[in-house]
Structures are given as structure tokens and as C-alpha cells.
Design a binder for these strands. Sequence first.
DNA 1: TATAAAAGTTAGACTAGTCTAACAAATATA
DNA 2: TATATTTGTTAGACTAGTCTAACTTTTATA
Lengths: 226, 226
Amino acid sequence: MLSHTEENYLKALLKLSFQNEEKPEAGTNEMAAYLGVKPATATDMLKKLKEKELVTYKKYGKILLTELGRAKGIAILRKHRLWETFLYEKLDFSWDEVHEVAEQLEHIQSPKLVNKLEEFLDFPEFDPHGDPIPRANGELPTVDKVLLTDVKAGESCQVVAVKDTSTVFLQYLEKLQVTIGTLVKVMEVVDFDGSMNIQIASSDPRNVSMKFAESLFVKKKTSVTV
Amino acid sequence: MLSHTEENYLKALLKLSFQNEEKPEAGTNEMAAYLGVKPATATDMLKKLKEKELVTYKKYGKILLTELGRAKGIAILRKHRLWETFLYEKLDFSWDEVHEVAEQLEHIQSPKLVNKLEEFLDFPEFDPHGDPIPRANGELPTVDKVLLTDVKAGESCQVVAVKDTSTVFLQYLEKLQVTIGTLVKVMEVVDFDGSMNIQIASSDPRNVSMKFAESLFVKKKTSVTV
DNA sequence: TATAAAAGTTAGACTAGTCTAACAAATATA
DNA sequence: TATATTTGTTAGACTAGTCTAACTTTTATA
């Protein structure tokens, strides 16, 4: 049986691994910052998780989830996203209210509860944020990712991956404050050159080239009124 | 903000006060036994709750909830019983499975959640056990209590109070293992003398006199198939 | 009513999770 | 590559909640 705290560390590690698929390992400071604790605290907990064979860890090294740790993390993520869906769909919570409550609900221990909840919600594949809900067997529904060029004017989407991984492009993304997870709304598509006016997160719209739009994978968001 | 543990102490105290309406105060050992901790532990926590003005307590004295403490306790009970109702009504949990999970769910902090849940359940007044669900303002729906004589053959009920508080009667109840909360099913009513064959909890049916049945308040249970 | 039993408290210890401050290792850079 | 910076670890301390063992107060009873 894992404590809430242990569960939170596993979930954090899983989330961090998603942020960088090819390099799924994390550092102590990174973990600590993510969880809002001091690095010393994270070090202690990582030793403990290593004892329980939930992470691979050695002094001054990077941290990785073991198979077991990943499975536990996935189970928590599953609960989190199912609860978010419940709150949004059944209890009229708004898009931005669900997360905080789901952070609490995800720690409820009852295998029956999570499966019954899933059934009650009619086996949803994505949560209100458009993120995939892990299935009981741990599989993640694949995201229907498309290039930004395939998004039409008026539609919203979320950046899920980059096609072009060149330094110049990544630096450009950084300048634009675009990272994995950034929300983008296509305001207008210019037929002439294929460029787009897009709104990045909540900032002012700006124009990006067709080449740019061909280099970014996004997933379309079911339009959510926040 | 109260910890889960503090909340559990308040809930325990509230429950104990219900068990003895005229004498709603509890003792340290009683609390400890109820919560499954040692008396020394309860003493420490009671001091802490006193500091927070949630209970009235002094050394070697009895413990009582303050107005504030009672309100907090009622709020937890409200959540507990709403969640039980949710699990039973919406997620197909059985009568005996709901409690354990509700013990966890009752600690979720979100005023919006509890009120929305109540609305989603269509403002239920009683939980699957037939216990009243406190309303948002703290009021408890009154239980429709009747004398055992008013229960017909085939109906089930739960003991809620005694009309006759004489020692002989109470001792008789004790011998029969009847206390507040005991489930009773009326198997047969004998017209001749008004006596009844009743099944107490899950034990074998036995005959009780009309006088007995006139001395016990029960609430009828909506028939629940366990 | 004196004493035995029951009820309750105190003191000291332990664990989980956190912190700060000082230190050590790894990495980046001049 | 030598040094500065970043990253991570260790040691020691604190809080909440728990325990055991010894002690004190209250209550019941001989």
C-alpha cells in the first residue's frame, strides 16, 4: 500500500516522462520543483521508492520508473482523469475546476470504484482536457494527432509533439513560448501562402508560416467553453 | 483546515452523541475504542481539538462537541452519507460495500463537490442504510420513527430508540443483543396476543410480546436486497 | 468509607514527511 | 583543463500521529 505522498511522486515522475518521451528520466531538482518540495526531501523519498522497487535510482544519477512504478503511476493517472471526466460531465464542473478536486479523488483506494466509475461514464477515452484516460489494463488510447496545418480556422488544439526537432526550430518554439501541452487556437488561415494567425495560450494572435505549421503535431480539442 | 485524523475524531464524537441523545458526552477510552487507537493517543488529540475550540474538554472530564465542532462533524457525516448514496444508487455498490469507500470519500475538500453531488442525486434524505443525510444547513431530516407494533409482517426496520427506559427492559434488550441500530425483521404477527416473531440481526427468529413491541421505536427500512 | 478497579494522563519513543544548512559530485564554461 | 556553477546528498531538526509503560484521578464496591 502506497501513501498519498508516494503516489504523488510516482505520478510526477510519470508526468515528467511524458514531457520528454525519448528521455523519460528525471532529476532530483526537477522532481522537487514539480512537487513543490525541497530537493533534500525528494532525495529521501526517492531512496524509499527505490527500496520498494518503484524507481531505479542511484546517487547523483537520473531517476526512472520501474515497470511496477509505471503501472502504479498509470493507475493513479487513470483515476485522476476518470474523476475529472465525472466532475465535468456529471457535476457541471468547469474545465479549470476539475483538476484540484481530482488531485484528491485520485488517491481513493477501491478497484471496484474506479472500474464502476469508468462504466458509469461509458468508457471515456479522453478527459475534459483532451488527455487520454489509461484503460484498466494500463494502455493509453492513442491520441489522434495531426499537423497544425490540418487544423481549420476557429478550431483549438494542443501541441503534443514536434515533427522537426532541429535546434533552430526548437529555439523558435521556445521564443514563442510553445511547449508540449501549449494550447493553440487557429484564428485565420491565409490561403495565399498557407500561413496562419494563431493564438498561443492566452496571448495575442500572431502569424506563423506554413513551414511552421507543418512541423508541429497537435491534437484537436473538443471545443470546451471555459 | 482539519486533518483527516481530526475529522475522524469529530465524526466519532458526533456518532457517539447520537447513540445517547440525552447524554451526548463521551469518555476518552470510549473515543479511543471507537477509533481503534490507544487512550493516550485520544487524550493528545482531544487537547488539540480543545485548542481549536472544537470540543469542550478538561482533564478527567467528559468530552462534548462545541457548536463549531458539531457543525464540522455534521458536514463530514453529510459527505459520508451522500457518497454512500452515490455508490449505491449510481455505481451498483452493495449495501455492505459502501461504507468503507465512503470513509475515504468523506474527507474530500470541495464545498462545490458535495452540493453538486447532492443535486445530482436529487436531494436524497436518507442514505442506503436508512440514516438521515444532513442538509447543507446542517439540519437532519427527521426519521419517521414508529413503534415496533406498527411494523407489519414481512417488513424490516431498524431500532432507533427505546420508549421504556427501565432497567429491566434495557437488560432484556441487552440479553437479546438489541441495541440502537439493530436490524429487525418482523416474520409474523400473532393476532391472538399481539406478540411477534422477529428476526434480530441475522440470528434465528424468536417471539416477543406485544408489550415489548410497544416499547421500542424503530424506523422502517426501504427493503434493501443485500 | 477505605480500597480496589476503571478511566484517564504523562513522559518518552518511534515513523513519515518535511525543512535548513553545510557539503560533495557532476557539468558547463572561461 | 581548471574553476565556477549547477545539481544532488547528508546531517540534524521539527511536526503530526501513534505507541508503551508508569502514574494519577475518579468511580464502584466490599
